[in-house]
Amino acid sequence: MMKLVRPFFWVSKQIIMSSDFLPPETAQMCFENLNGSCVKTPYSPGPRVILYAVFGFGVVLTVFGNLLVMISIFHFQQLHTPTNFLIASLACADFLVGVTVMPFSTVRSVESCWYFGDSYCKFHSCFEGSFCYASIYHLGFISLDRYIAVTDPLVYPTRFTASLSGLCIAFSWLLSIIYSLSLIGTGANEAGLEDLVSALTCVGGCQIAVNERWVLVNFLLFFIPTLVMIIVYSKIFLIAQKQARRIESMSSKTVRSADSYRDRVAKRERKAAKTLGMAVLAFLISWLPYFIDSIIDAFLGFITPTYIYEILVWIAYYNSAMNPLIYAFFYPWFRKAIRLIVTGRVLRENSSTINLFSE
């Protein structure tokens, strides 16, 4: 049985076909009329329909959920804040995962064959890497933004400006895209694996090999911003606790209006930090098992079974659909924006000035 090669984070792994790479006469092939075709290992009709339904639902949720986030933030003037611009750019990365990665991975996972050509195989892996890293760097900058907002909410608007937000967005995208395209485009990822790639090459496979050195680099590019986010949100949590105790201790006292306003702003910023912290936690839960397994596989001889890999990669993909659900659950303004978009009220004149906040 031939296993499709993993995305570029991984050192390429394929399970050897039957003895001496010669498939049995009854084996199905990805391309029946072509020599050198990969062996196809299709699911039976029932599981195939279920898998297409589950993966297809993920694609639809990812595309339309993140599209609603982007439309909401860009259309309604009240949402034009530096933090929300970061969130919209993050939603763009998730949206592109739903458009350029997940549909093709659906066919690959269910049919066990790659039908989209060698060129798009490389682009597919580049897109996957670019958008994953773009997401994590956006989340890293969002965590720093929330730290500034919680520690000094009154000065925050002058410290984290739209220009600074734009620089963070540009850095996140440029670093992610340049790194991913350079790694695949130069062939550095396959250095030392040429014999393996040649031996496992077949028509209908998508073979993007990454050697142990670059697998480690990939993991560090994930782990370092992850560690920063964990530290930052731990500090935010401790600060939020202190602020909450301060507000409780002053609730029975007469306070100046400035202090009262500061407390209201601090409460709002803590709530935003909590919601975005949930998005970070969801990202880590989704992607951390994938990256840990990539390290294990690269250094222990590709020991992960195919079905385990498919589970891990789709858990990671589904993270792109989770952020809109988190926003819908925690943000009343997002729920109101969705209603306005779905009902078509955003097409009315001056709809961009509608007040989305209850307070």
Score class of each variant (00 low, 15 high):
80 H>P: 04
34 L>S: 12
183 L>V: 11
193 L>W: 00
330 F>Y: 15
128 E>S: 12
189 N>I: 02
60 V>R: 02
273 A>Q: 01
33 N>C: 02
153 P>Y: 02
194 E>F: 00
333 W>A: 14
35 N>K: 14
273 A>Y: 04
95 F>Y: 15
201 T>E: 13
300 L>R: 12
44 S>Q: 13
280 V>T: 13
122 K>Y: 04
87 I>A: 13
219 F>Y: 13
235 K>C: 06
199 A>Q: 12
291 F>L: 14
344 G>H: 01
304 T>E: 03
172 S>Q: 07
153 P>D: 03
197 V>G: 00
86 L>V: 01
56 G>W: 07
142 I>T: 06
35 N>I: 03
64 F>C: 09
68 L>S: 10
172 S>Y: 12
29 M>E: 05
1 M>T: 14
284 L>M: 10
271 K>E: 11
263 D>L: 03
195 D>Y: 02
36 G>P: 06
159 R>S: 03
322 M>P: 00
278 M>W: 14
227 L>Q: 12
211 N>C: 05
239 I>R: 15
86 L>S: 11
147 Y>H: 12
160 F>Q: 09
245 R>Q: 13
333 W>M: 08
110 V>N: 08
270 R>W: 04
299 F>E: 04
200 L>I: 03
288 L>Y: 10
345 R>T: 12
77 Q>F: 04
317 Y>H: 13
210 V>S: 15
117 G>P: 05
242 K>R: 15
147 Y>G: 02
321 A>M: 08
339 R>N: 11
112 S>N: 15
236 I>N: 14
117 G>H: 04
190 E>R: 11
